[in-house]
Computed example of a mutant assay.
Amino acid sequence: MKIPLGILLPENKANKQNIEKYLSKNSYIITVGDRTTEKMINFALTPSLQIIDNLEKRERRESPIQSNSTIELNVDNPPAEITSQSIDLIKKAFSMRPPVRINVTGEEDLLVLPVCIYAPKNAVVLYGQPNEGLVVVKITPEIKNKTQMLLDLMK
């Protein structure tokens, strides 16, 4: 995932005002990554779907805070893989009442791909690009096709 799927906001520009430019009033916000999830919660932009692994740059970290109404799900997803269980749980999460948090044992980075494939039309996916900034992906048919092709290449 070295090439961002969407718009890369450099770290110094990844503030609430710039992020909100990519959100509409009814955006279904999805975050992949602990730091990204924490950042959005701190901006009072609670993600509808949050995918975390309690790691940041492979270092253990505290779980981002969450509201009492957050539904928590758990899945195993080894580093550099996307398991069928992870895909099934992501699909299930989209049918649940938000906010939903998926706690990953292993690594969540590549789960951006199935998230983009199965996300609702009004979704905006946010994830970190290490040492560069925040990637903002508006879900479009083109993004769904591109991420499906990438996922197919991994099989």
Rank of each mutant, 00 (worst) to 15 (best):
V104F: 02
N54P: 01
D109S: 02
G6C: 04
R58F: 10
L5S: 07
K144L: 04
E142A: 12
E38L: 13
C116D: 04
Y22A: 11
N77P: 06
K91P: 08
I7C: 02
T147N: 11
D109Y: 01
I71S: 13
L111H: 08
I139Y: 12
M149G: 10
I102A: 03
I41T: 10
D109P: 01
S48N: 13
G128R: 00
K16A: 12
M40D: 10
P99D: 10
N68D: 14
K2G: 01
A80W: 02
K39Q: 14
K91G: 07
N68H: 12
N26R: 06
P64M: 14
E108V: 00
A80F: 09
A14P: 02
V75S: 11
Y118I: 00
L8A: 02
N77G: 04
L126R: 03
M96A: 06
N15F: 06
N42W: 05
D109L: 01
E56S: 14
L89M: 13
V104K: 01
I41C: 08
I117L: 05
F94K: 06
N145M: 03
L113S: 07
E107K: 00
R35A: 14
K13V: 00
V125A: 11
A14R: 01
I3T: 08
M1P: 03
Y22P: 06
A80S: 07
T140K: 05
P10G: 06
P47E: 11
N145F: 05
G128Q: 04
S67D: 15
I139C: 13
N18K: 01
E81N: 12
S63A: 15
V115L: 14
L153W: 08
L9K: 04
M1D: 03
V32N: 15
P79H: 07
D152H: 14
I117T: 04
I139P: 11
Y118K: 01
S84F: 05
R97F: 04
C116Y: 03
P98Y: 02
I3F: 05
L110E: 03
A93Y: 09
N26V: 00
I87F: 08
P130Y: 07
S84M: 10
A14C: 05
R61N: 13
C116Q: 02
Y118H: 12
K39I: 10
K92S: 11
K25S: 12
E56K: 09
K92M: 09
L111W: 10
L9P: 03
Q129Y: 01
K146F: 09
P79F: 06
F43D: 09
M40W: 08
T105E: 00
L151C: 10
R61W: 08
M149H: 13
L23Y: 08
I30A: 11
